[in-house]
Design a binder for these strands. Sequence first.
DNA 1: ATTATTGTTCGTAACTTTGCGAACAATATA
DNA 2: TATATTGTTCGCAAAGTTACGAACAATAAT
Lengths: 109, 109
Amino acid sequence: MKKKRDYTVDNEQLARFAKALGHPARITIMEFLANQDSCFFGDIHDELPIAKATVSQHLKELKDAGLIQGEIEPPKVRYCVNMKNWNLAKNLFYDFFASECIHGEIHCE
Amino acid sequence: MKKKRDYTVDNEQLARFAKALGHPARITIMEFLANQDSCFFGDIHDELPIAKATVSQHLKELKDAGLIQGEIEPPKVRYCVNMKNWNLAKNLFYDFFASECIHGEIHCE
DNA sequence: ATTATTGTTCGTAACTTTGCGAACAATATA
DNA sequence: TATATTGTTCGCAAAGTTACGAACAATAAT
């Protein structure tokens, strides 16, 4: 029997972030939140071609992945980027893609 | 009825890449391919704690997403990073995360 | 106390993902 | 021709994803 390595913690985390971003609605949400001050549920919903129940579901996934957080401001809910985890994701992705720079063309100096 | 925007082509593409990377096995594969010259199926399989049928499946997904390509060198199969699409992915991710630099701490100059 | 606004949760349906072992195909070796 | 090596495909099971409308809860306004 050969010995098989387990996945590293970093790779598990990176995969978790990637998975959370693996839907155009969730990409659109993150992009929107990154460039807005007002980030109420309704504003997000207006950006997306899907029902509010589905939007709520996508927001929950982003929240579970740690990429956003929401706080209730009755009668609305304000969503924001979780900067700590967003930066963690950013760094993991940067390092991931940087490892390819040995072949590199773009973004490698 | 409100008018809802469709997803942009870029966001769809970015989501497709993110989804393809949304599993630790596939992250591990890409990382491995990025840093090796020999990239036979068997070498990849040895890195992963899963059955070869499952490895084959993950490779197929990465291939379908355009991130890798494989060529038969009987009796082996050599897998490699598809640099064109890898760089496209890299750029899409970089731009995606760069949009957050208005709040930024790290990697923003 | 109604009624309206806002967003979540429930229930359901269709589809996709992940994983495995077994069977298979294709070449190389004895 | 038999046998070994390499990797894919098949068939299946269990679990997760995506989507919706309807029902619900919580606050605010009439």
